Simulated assay, not measured.
Amino acid sequence: MRKRSKATDRDRQELDVRGSTLSKMIDRLERDGYVERNIATLDARIKLITLTPRGAEAKRQVREIWISMESELAKGIPLGELEEFCAGLQSTRNMLKRRVGRLR
């Protein structure tokens, strides 16, 4: 999610999950102390999801590991090949997304 305190439908689509799935994910994150839910002051229908200090630390650690792994995996692969590989993965993801979307 972006650096703001509320999830939007665009965030849900970016994660490629159903609203009910996202809600369950947030329930677990809240239960485990990574996020907290608050009610928006201007509209009680809106729930604001914010990272707790524990969540912020977990995010930092994951980002650090991600960058390290990405760097290690890319070592020695020519940039053109790496771009071609990433494009192939994206095409595969899009195809699977379309096919799974038909099943929903």
Rank of each mutant, 00 (worst) to 15 (best):
D43V: 06
K97P: 01
E64K: 14
G80N: 14
L103R: 15
E84M: 07
Y34Q: 03
P78E: 13
T50W: 02
T21Q: 14
W66C: 08
T21Y: 07
M25A: 11
R12V: 05
Q13R: 15
E36D: 05
M69S: 11
K3Q: 11
A56S: 10
L103I: 12
K75Y: 05
R10P: 00
N38C: 05
G19F: 01
T52E: 03
R28P: 00
P78F: 08
I67N: 09
S5W: 10
K75T: 03
Q90P: 01
L51R: 02
A58R: 06
E81Q: 11
N38G: 12
T52K: 01
M95A: 15
R60V: 02
S68T: 12
S5H: 14
K59R: 10
M69N: 09
I77P: 01
L96F: 14
G88I: 05
L48T: 04
K24M: 04
L79A: 15
L79S: 13
A44D: 10
L22F: 10
L15T: 03
F85N: 07
V35T: 07
D16I: 02
S71E: 10
A40V: 02
D27H: 07
R99Y: 11
K97G: 06
M25H: 06
D16M: 07
V17A: 03
R102E: 13
R98D: 12
A7G: 03
K6T: 08
A44V: 07
R2N: 12
L42V: 07
L96G: 09
R63I: 10
V35Q: 01
L42A: 10
I67T: 14
A74G: 06
K24E: 06
